[in-house]
Amino acid sequence: MKKARVFELYVAGVCVILGILLVGQVRTQEYIGQSQIPSRRLEDLSDMLRRSEAERMILEKEVETLRKQLSKVVEGEKAAEAAQAELIKAKMAAGLTTVEGTGVIVTLNDSKRQAGPSESHGLFLVHDNDILQVINELFAAGAEAVSVNGQRIIAVSEIRCSGPVISVNNVRIGPPYEIYAIGEPGALDSALHMRDGILDTLRAWGIEAKVIKSTSIQIPAYKGGLYFEYANPVLEGVQK
């Protein structure tokens, strides 16, 4: 029986190893089962992998180009902000935005005086030239925006005699002429009231001229279209 014990001891020793191996292997197989896929699907999956890798390559390139664009945009963002501010300023200067502020309202009306037999009837009317002079004076006094009867005076505005009426921005307007000007009211007022200035001259002809200082006047934007058929911009020092 002692011999039997000896063989059992050895077999038991191998059994210990067997037990350890069994548990380890079962665990490993469970792990494989969790993490791996049946080999049947392996080809499908490798094909999918290849395809998605190719897709990834394309997307990577796209990412690269988009990153470059993004960095450009980020760089350009500050420039864009500045450009936006510049644009608003430019639009204001061009008269494309409605503006509001302190200023004066100048009202001009034809003379009530009847022309004598030897006098020209036209001398007692408000002419395009009179309005031009008033506006010129206002601009000289620092007016920042001017309108005549709601027509914004911009760089290409004409003020022109059009028979019995005056054409401003191709819109015909008649008396009384209300000229709105935004600027420092005192400066504008005194510029118009200069001795032997424009208002003195007009009043000499009996033309009614009234200047009202205002703390808040609104001048509308230029409503017409802007076409540049012959003028082309010349860019100087495009962008730094």
Partner: peptide, 23 residues
Amino acid sequence: ILPAIGLIAGIVIALFTPLRFPT
């Protein structure tokens, strides 16, 4: 009995150790 005890011992030892073979 000894081989059976040995087998159980091996299993128990393995169960109480985080043994796992590389795949």
